Computed example of a mutant assay.
Amino acid sequence: MQYFRLIFLVFIVAAVSGCANKFKTYNGPEVTQLYVLKSERKLVLMHHDTVLEQYEIDLGFAPDGDKKIEGDGRTPEGDYFIDRRNPNSDFHLSIGISYPNEYDIAEAKALGQPPGGDIFIHGRGPIYRKAGADWTWGCIAVTDREMERIYAMVQDGTPITILP
């Protein structure tokens, strides 16, 4: 009888710890392209011409227009790629976007300002869990649970197009 209790206890501990793991697995079709539709507040994950997932998003606190300079609160627009991952993000999990590109750097330089950087798709984390709409400094935010799925599905190097 003690043996069965031990097995049951091990099973319960494994089940509970599995629920707490923020690192999910994904075995479906490859995500070949990401689209951010700023005006619709949508992030779309594609496999070629097929929509795999769609998520409602929050943007920078100044959501209209293209990011021009550091600190403007805007989310950039253009073609980029996923270039890094942060499993220890203050925003639960995050994947980096390759902003700024050469065009962004030249545009900011013409304005005499730095272009900024550190643009991510990320969760909310414990601090911003109850934040309102469009609260980031230019990043793209989803819920923590959605970010776990996105983090598992999207690989470094995946192209992302951010549209107005």
Rank of each mutant, 00 (worst) to 15 (best):
I69R: 01
G28C: 10
S98C: 14
I121E: 09
S89W: 10
P63E: 14
H122S: 12
G65T: 00
Y80D: 15
K38I: 06
R85G: 15
M46V: 02
A108L: 02
D83H: 11
N101Y: 03
E107F: 01
T75E: 04
G117F: 08
A62S: 15
E56I: 10
P114H: 07
D64L: 15
I121V: 13
E102P: 14
K24N: 12
Q54K: 14
P114N: 07
D58M: 05
G60Y: 12
I57V: 09
S98T: 13
D64T: 11
G112R: 00
P100S: 14
F61V: 06
D72M: 06
T50P: 12
H92D: 10
Y103K: 14
G112S: 01
F61E: 10
T25D: 09
T50Q: 14
I57L: 08
S98N: 13
V31A: 06
F91E: 04
F61H: 11
T50M: 09
I105F: 03
K42R: 15
I95E: 08
F61S: 12
D66M: 08
H48K: 15
E107N: 02
Q54L: 14
N88Y: 09
V36F: 03
K22F: 06
G96I: 04
K38A: 04
L111G: 05
D49F: 13
I69G: 00
L93W: 01
P29F: 12
E30L: 07
I95C: 12
P76R: 01
G65K: 00
D104G: 00
D118H: 14
P114S: 06
D58R: 00
S39L: 10
F120W: 11
T75D: 06
T32C: 14
S89N: 09
K42G: 12
Y35H: 10
R124K: 03
D66G: 07
N88E: 14
Y103C: 06
N101G: 07
T75C: 06
M46T: 01
S89M: 11
Q113H: 05
G60H: 11
D64F: 14
G65W: 00
G60R: 06
Q33D: 01
L37K: 11
P29Q: 15
P115V: 03
D79Q: 11
F91A: 03
I95W: 05
I97H: 13
Y103G: 12
K38E: 05
N101E: 06
T50N: 10
I95F: 07
K68G: 04
L37D: 14
A106L: 03
L34A: 03
T32I: 12
L111I: 03
E30Y: 07
G28V: 09
L34E: 01
K67I: 05
R85M: 15
T25W: 13
D104V: 00
N88W: 13
G96A: 04
I82H: 11
F61Q: 08
L111A: 07
D72T: 02
P100R: 09
K68F: 12
R124P: 05
T25R: 08
K42C: 08
H92K: 09
K24P: 07
G60W: 06
D72P: 05
N21I: 04
Y99Q: 08
N86F: 02
